[in-house]
């Protein structure tokens, strides 16, 4: 049997909101260590990797070595509309069960339950190497969200140029060119901090459509962390409630290359 209780149900709601537009069906891989999810978008350009450690849950039980629960994202996000912001969530599945039961509670006054039919999803699992990035940028989620939204008005691609001292986001579209520079700002109020760590400068192009999709996970934490290496996928990481010990929602995006 699998049973997990999360007092802060909105965390799961935010996670599903963050990935629903990238993937239609996903597998929840449950083990005694927690919940993992890996899924690619249909065009194999981006990948979602979720890790929820048991520390994020008030109660966590998985009797088997592992369980795979296939979820349709549209249905899950529909179910989570039932979940109020202060509700706790309990997820429960029998060992050979065909459903995942969600219970949303606020105290004992209001209890809603929904049994979701599980799916058999054939998904390709990719090995993602542990990468040390040449450039790491930690910036407020609100800033990331704003940059991606504003830049999307001018073009399809955004160049991220990370150098010692700061990071430049630029777009070159039909109506003209624009750029936003964020200075390395370690000594300001926590919520405004921008930390740019550079071993070697990196400049890469990415599709704004995907970067904007990732921004939907912004409510999960205060800061987002970008990892860049030359000619490799970008990593966009949201730590759950800004605590890596609880887990993270990571996105990977393949770069675009100039002809």
């Amino acid at each position: 049997m699998f049973e997990a209780v999360l007092s802060n149900g909105s965390t799961l709601k935010k996670i599903f909101e963050g990935i629903k537009d990238l993937c239609t069906d996903v597998n929840f891989d449950v083990s005694s260590e927690g919940i993992k999810l890996q899924a690619m978008d249909s065009s194999h350009v981006s990948l979602v990797s979720l890790e929820l450690h048991t520390d994020v849950f008030e109660q966590f039980r998985c009797d088997r070595d592992s369980m795979t629960l296939g979820l349709n994202m549209k249905s899950v996000t529909q179910i989570f509309k039932i979940c109020g912001n202060d509700d706790s969530v309990t997820m429960r599945a029998e060992d050979e069960g065909e459903t995942l039961e969600f219970t949303f509670e606020k105290g004992e006054d209001r209890v809603s339950t929904f049994e979701l039919k599980l799916m058999d999803i054939d998904s390709e699992h990719l090995g993602i190497p542990d990468t040390e990035y040449q450039c790491n940028v930690k910036l407020p989620c609100s800033e990331y969200q704003r940059i991606c939204r504003d830049m999307a008005g001018f073009g399809d691609n955004m160049t991220i140029d990370c150098q010692k001292g700061g990071v430049t986001f630029s777009v070159d579209g039909e109506v003209g060119k624009g750029k936003i520079f964020l200075k390395h700002q370690p000594n300001v109020e926590e919520k405004h901090k921008v930390i740019v760590t550079v071993k070697e400068g990196v400049e890469l192009d990415f599709a704004l459509r995907y970067l904007n999709n990732f921004a939907k996970a912004a409510p999960l934490s205060d800061h987002v962390q970008l990892g860049l290496n030359s000619d490799t996928p970008l990593s966009v990481r949201f730590d759950i409630e800004d605590k890596a010990t609880l887990g993270s929602l990571k996105f990977f995006l393949a770069p675009k290359i100039k002809e």
Binding site: S43, H125, G127, D205, A254, K256, I257
Partner: peptide, 14 residues
């Protein structure tokens, strides 16, 4: 227009 790469050229099936 730059060419969009896919993740399959970076990550291998595990």
């Amino acid at each position: 227009q730059p060419t969009q790469l896919t993740l399959n050229s970076f990550f291998t099936p595990s």
